[in-house]
């Protein structure tokens, strides 16, 4: 169907579509493709070296999964920070990726776990690393005939796993800043949300960590942060606040873990 009609919008939990539904006249002129009948897409598969979640897997599915809590604890941390329990039980991880909000809560932890996006179309299957998936605000490498069917993560041993969400209150808030940090033998992954047009890896910070450059205060991170992110002043917060708080969280959370943070 997607191949035949490029204007069709696949929807799963519809938690983003419905927020502004009553007053959004334009949203009502579009056509939606309800995926809820595709039960096989609601799945979690454990292979020796990968963990794959089907595109209709909800936050709540992951919260309830004990193996997930052991192997990918940040998924649980992030899922619990998404909206309310009602949203958690309808919203899907794949939907979070495709809605492409720069403030998404699910995407940073997926990216910090090196997730890939598995898409299927009549042409076949394509798998794209999540950190290469976005190329601008709400711009992503998905053709309209492709449907996201799964999200795949490599199974690795991590010695650092941190997720921080800074919202305007302690629950049911939209991120002002999000940060996911992992470290494994494959190196550092520092992923930030709500500080750029897309969620992204902070490569300059990662380099700074790999190189072990000394960091004596949050201010020492500002130059690298300025290279990595480009936050804006908006209705929820300010550019200055986002840059400084990102630096402060990074500094305080890594101090004591990373020897170069003194």
């Amino acid at each position: 169907m997607l191949a035949g009609d490029s204007s069709l919008i696949p929807i799963a939990g519809a938690t983003d579509v419905l927020v502004h539904w009553p007053g959004n006249l334009e949203a009502k002129t579009r056509s939606y493709l309800d995926l809820s009948g595709l039960g096989e897409l609601r799945s979690m598969q454990w292979a020796d070296d990968t963990f794959t979640i089907g595109a209709l897997t909800t936050y709540w599915d992951v919260i309830c999964n004990e193996q997930c809590a052991q192997a990918f604890p940040l998924l649980i941390n992030a899922a619990r920070q998404v909206g309310s329990v009602q949203i958690q039980s309808r919203g899907t991880w794949a939907g979070n990726i495709i809605n492409a909000s720069p403030a998404a809560d699910g995407v940073p932890v997926l990216m910090a776990y090196d997730a890939t996006v598995v898409m299927q179309s009549c042409e076949g299957i394509e798998e794209i690393p999540l950190d290469e998936f976005y190329f601008g605000y709400k711009q992503m490498r998905r053709r309209t005939d492709q449907l996201v069917v799964a999200i795949r993560m490599p199974r690795r041993a991590h010695d650092v796993e941190i997720f921080e969400k800074v919202g305007a209150r302690r629950a049911q808030a939209i991120s002002k800043i999000g940060l996911a940090i992992t470290h494994s033998q494959d190196g550092w992954r520092i992923v930030a949300s709500a500080v750029a047009p897309t969620i992204l890896r902070c490569k300059a910070i990662e380099t700074l960590l790999e190189e072990g450059s000394p960091v004596r205060s949050p201010d020492d991170l500002m130059a690298a942060i300025a290279k990595d992110v480009s936050p804006i002043d908006d209705i929820r917060s300010s550019r200055l606040y986002r840059e400084r708080v990102l630096a402060r969280i990074l500094y305080h959370d890594l101090k004591g873990i990373v020897p170069s943070f003194v």
Partner: peptide, 16 residues
Amino acid sequence: MKNCQLTNYIIPTSDD
């Protein structure tokens, strides 16, 4: 009022 939605006008939740 520019932030005339409950997503952007922040009232306390029970957790606050």
